[in-house]
Computed example of a mutant assay.
Amino acid sequence: MPLPTDEKRLALAREVIQAFDDLHGVFPGYRPAHAKGILAVGSFTSTAEAARLSVAPHFHAETPVFIRFSNFAGVPMAADNKPDEASPRGCAVRFQLGEHKHTDIVAHSTDSFPTRTAEEFIEFLHAVKASGPDAPHPTPIEQFLQSHPKALAFVMTPKPIPTSFGRESYFSVSAYRFIDASGAGRYGRYRILPEAGNEYLSTEEAAAKGANFLMEGLAAQLASGAVKMQLWVQLAEPGDVVDDATTQWPVERQQVLLGVISLTKLVPADDVDGRRIIFDPIPRVAGIEPSADPLLEPRADVYVMSGRRRREQAGI
């Protein structure tokens, strides 16, 4: 996936990466956010409903997949049991459609995003960085949240620690247009839900866990059997906002089961191909189109730019 040639887009991507670097520090060979993660492989089996919704190839055949679960922070030693380092957790899915051909989903464990644009997100990260324990009140982040109610709602949304990566729900905050065989399209947002159901720890239970319990737990689970995640899409109705990641749709909107992801084994941490993966929030596949969400292009640019830096630093 190439970087854009537009200098404004490149400059914006650099600003986002720099904001993360300033907040978390630079750890060569790691992502600036969601640095600590674990990669698994398996397969996706689609439903008849998925085939009716879209002509996308992975909705019409069983497809190999990779899934990377991760903690939020850009710190590779971030503790799995500390909300400020682990939450929201990430889940990125790659559908392997052929040699050098794929489409991805990038999701996290909170069903919203704090800002509508990348520029606002940079402001958000700067405000967090400037709001250390010695900062006078109102701190920069308190001021930002006061003037950005959607960001305040995101921050205040409960983010409990799950018992397992495979017992958490994940949401793609941007909408996509799913195109059927007649050429008609409907907007929807992905939801990746645990087949075994959600299960969370109390604050006391989480504090008693080890710093790597989610990573170690997934390895143990896969050693004894498949971990299954259901892929759903929540469909928009006419009049719903489809270009704003801070706006949620009503809970009663129709949801369609697209298929089941069965994870069977881990990818070794030193696997070069696994480490080289750069996930892409833009589908780039027939049958699924990006919405006009202003976060999508900057996110894609940031992933490519930071991914190339990571590869170069790691010598891969």
Rank of each mutant, 00 (worst) to 15 (best):
M1W: 14
M1I: 15
P2F: 06
T5P: 12
R9N: 12
R9A: 15
L12D: 00
E15R: 07
D21F: 06
F27Q: 05
F27T: 03
R31I: 01
A35W: 00
F44M: 04
T45I: 10
V65T: 01
M77A: 13
A78D: 14
E85C: 03
S87R: 02
R94I: 08
T103C: 02
A107G: 07
S112T: 12
E123A: 13
L125A: 13
H126Y: 14
K129R: 11
P133K: 15
P133N: 15
H137N: 15
P138H: 11
Q143Y: 11
Q146T: 14
F154N: 00
K159L: 01
R167A: 06
Y170D: 00
V173D: 02
S174Y: 00
D180N: 09
A181N: 13
A181W: 11
I192G: 02
P194E: 08
E195L: 09
E199I: 04
L201F: 00
Q221S: 10
A223Q: 05
M229A: 04
A236G: 06
V242S: 15
A245H: 04
T246G: 07
P250S: 09
L257D: 01
S262V: 10
L263M: 08
L266C: 02
A286L: 05
D301Q: 04
R308L: 12
I316T: 12
